[in-house]
Each structure stands twice: as C-alpha cells, then as structure tokens.
C-alpha cells in the first residue's frame, strides 16, 4: 500500500491535516485579509463576538480586532513552532549521530550532557533563557530549541546504534569511506522516517511552549501571538471571556491537528508498528 493510502486510512490524521491546511492558509492570507496592524485600535473595547459583522470575534480590552490578532498570531505560532523544531533537530541529530556512531567515552560524555538537559525543568529553563536574553523572536526560538533537543538526540543515537552494525555500513567502512561520509550518506538517511515523525510532533509542543512563554509576557513585543492574547484578556475574564477564549481555541486546534497528523505520519511510515497498535 502506498504511503498516501496508509495516511488516508487514518481518519484522525485526515482531520488533523485538514485543520492544519486551514490554519496555514489563514496564516498565509493574513496580510491580505487584515492589512492593518493587529495592534491597532479599530473599534470600541470589549465588543462582544458575533455582534458586528466587521468584527466577528469581537474586540479586546484596547479595542483591537481579535480575528485579526488570530490571523497574525497564526503566522507567529507556526513560524516559531517550525523554526524552533528545526533548531532542536540541528542540535539533537548531530549529537545523537556522533554519540551513537562513536560509542565509548564520546557516547558516555554526550549522553551525560543530554541527561543533564533532560533533568533541568525545561519550562523553567526556557523562561530563564528568554528573560535573560530579552524577549525577541531569536531568543524565543533558541530557548525552545535548547529545551527540546534531548529526545531527538536519544532517538537518533538509538537508531544509529542499531544501523551501524548493518552489513552495508560495515561494507562502507571496509572500502574505506570517510566516517563523516558514512554517517551522512549511509546511516542518517535511514533515520529520516522516525526523525520526521518526532519533528512533526515537536512542532505542536513548540507552539504550546511559545504560547506559554508569551502568556507570561515573554513574547516578542512586536509580534502578535496567541499566548499574549490569552494573557491580555486575563484581567477581564468574567465580563469579556471571549478575549481569552478564542486564541486558546486556536492554540488547541493547531496543536491537536499537528499531533493527529504526526501520529498519522507515524502509522504511515511504520506500517508494521501501526497494525500492532490496534
């Protein structure tokens, strides 16, 4: 059965993919849909949702359009989720590959290092990093990447450990290929599938982490983000619930969609494993 067919057989994955496509489209057309800055006051504050057609989701404490904030926030969330996952992969994959391939003392040292990062409470570390480096897009991406790479390193190490005893790798060693090339062209291509699955699931956690940071006021002050919007409505929770409600739903749906799609990807890439789960 082809990859696409296997993916499509998983109903959850299809739902996830559909939501994801909608969110991505929403993010792409945000500047056309809402050309004005989402920070601008456009109507009276505390406008309830579904009252005025121009502002279907109402306005927040400063009269900013919530729908516009959601659209612009989608760009921020998706970008940060994707880029910080790439950062985590960039740290985790080489570390895991080196540890797994080199073995011995190098492996020991690198794994201790990984364990150290797994022991530190990751959210607290992310808070400290962003606070110290000042809340900017770069520092947020870096902080999320720094706290998310350990599972990647462990996964890649495990894969490499089992791959390096395979015959084709042994053959490459025998014909004298340089180690770097063996890792790059013989070993790593065969670890791609699990890395893709883990990466797709990590984007969701990265979005959750980013929204938590900006909820605490650690978002980039120039970027409208969903977490910030939830935090901004906190003080008027009782009389204006929608200010915090809609951005939270957006986060929830996006993360849920990513998780569903990631699991579908997992089932499609590891068909044997998937059947065993049912």
């Amino acid at each position: 059965m082809s990859f696409l067919k296997r993916f499509a057989r998983n109903r959850g994955a299809l739902i996830g993919l559909t939501i994801l496509v909608v969110v991505i489209l929403f993010a792409i057309i945000a500047p056309q849909l809402y050309p004005q800055s989402p920070w601008r006051t456009v109507a009276r504050p505390f406008l309830a949702p579904f009252v005025m057609d121009r502002f279907p989701l109402g306005t927040d404490t400063l009269g900013r359009d919530i729908a516009s904030g959601l659209a612009h926030g989608a760009r921020v969330s998706l970008t940060i989720g994707l880029v910080s996952t790439l950062v985590a992969l960039l740290i985790g994959v080489p570390l895991g590959a080196i540890a797994g391939y080199a073995g011995g003392i190098v492996d020991d040292a690198l794994m201790r290092f990984t364990e150290f990062f797994q022991t530190i409470p990751s959210f607290a570390l992310a808070i400290v990093l962003v606070a110290i480096l000042q809340p900017k897009l770069g520092s947020i991406v870096l902080a999320i990447g720094v706290v998310s790479w350990p599972p990647v390193a462990r996964l890649v190490r495990g894969e490499v450990l089992s791959l390096k005893t395979r015959e084709y790798v042994q053959a490459a060693i025998t014909i004298g290929q340089p180690t770097a090339r063996i890792i790059w062209s013989q070993v790593l291509p065969n670890t791609i599938a699990p890395i893709i699955v883990m990466g797709s699931l990590m984007i969701g956690s990265a979005i959750l982490l980013e929204s938590s940071l900006s909820f605490l006021g650690l978002g980039d002050p120039n970027l409208m983000s969903w977490g910030y919007m939830v935090g901004a409505g906190r003080t008027r929770l009782l009389d204006a619930w929608w200010i915090s409600f809609f951005p939270g739903v957006a986060i929830f749906l996006t993360v849920l969609a990513l998780n569903l799609a990631g699991e579908g990807l997992n089932d499609a890439l590891n068909p044997r494993l998937a059947r065993g789960r049912e």
Partner: peptide, 22 residues
C-alpha cells in the same frame, strides 16, 4: 487524552476558573 494533550495549560486554567468558580 488527545484533547488534554493539546490543550494549553494556562488557558484551561483560565477557562476552569470561569466555569467552576466564577
């Protein structure tokens, strides 16, 4: 489990505050 897994903690805290206490 899937739903809990994707829900932002701070948001569910706020919403439960509205529903269960306010």
């Amino acid at each position: 489990a899937l739903v809990f897994y994707a829900t932002p903690l701070f948001w569910v805290a706020l919403m439960s505050q509205i529903v269960f206490s306010l």
